[in-house]
Simulated scan of single mutants.
Amino acid sequence: MTKESLRKVEYYEMNAEDYRKLSPFEKTKAVAQKEVKHGWFHGWATDTHLLSEKDSGDLPQLVYATHAIIEQTDGSIVKIKPENIRFIG
Rank of each mutant, 00 (worst) to 15 (best):
M1K: 14
E4F: 11
E4V: 08
E4P: 04
S5P: 03
S5Y: 12
L6I: 03
L6Y: 09
L6H: 09
R7Y: 10
R7C: 08
R7N: 10
K8F: 01
V9Q: 01
V9Y: 01
V9L: 01
E10L: 07
E10S: 06
E10W: 07
Y12V: 00
Y12E: 00
Y12I: 00
Y12A: 05
E13V: 15
E13Y: 15
M14G: 04
M14S: 07
M14E: 13
N15M: 07
A16V: 13
A16C: 15
E17N: 15
E17Y: 15
E17L: 10
E17V: 06
D18K: 08
Y19L: 08
Y19Q: 04
Y19N: 03
R20K: 14
K21Q: 13
K21V: 02
K21D: 06
K21N: 12
K21W: 07
L22C: 04
S23H: 02
S23V: 01
P24I: 07
P24W: 05
F25P: 03
K27A: 02
A30D: 05
A30N: 03
A30T: 11
A30H: 06
V31E: 13
V31P: 02
A32G: 06
Q33C: 09
K34R: 07
V36R: 08
V36T: 10
K37S: 02
K37C: 02
K37W: 01
H38E: 11
H38P: 03
G39V: 01
G39R: 00
W40L: 07
H42T: 10
H42Q: 08
G43C: 00
G43F: 02
W44A: 14
A45I: 15
A45F: 15
D47G: 10
D47E: 12
D47I: 04
T48A: 12
H49C: 09
H49S: 14
L50V: 10
L51Q: 15
L51T: 06
L51K: 10
S52W: 14
S52T: 15
S52Q: 09
S52L: 14
K54P: 04
G57L: 02
G57V: 02
D58S: 15
D58P: 15
D58C: 10
L59N: 14
L59C: 15
L59M: 15
L59Y: 14
P60I: 09
Q61I: 11
Q61M: 13
L62E: 12
V63E: 05
V63T: 05
Y64W: 13
Y64E: 12
A65G: 06
A65L: 07
H67Q: 08
H67M: 07
A68C: 12
A68F: 04
I69G: 01
E71H: 10
E71L: 03
D74A: 09
D74F: 05
G75T: 00
V78Q: 05
K79M: 13
K79I: 09
I80Y: 04
I80L: 02
I80E: 05
P82A: 05
P82R: 05
E83I: 13
E83F: 13
E83M: 12
N84C: 11
N84L: 06
I85V: 11
I85H: 04
I85R: 00
G89P: 06
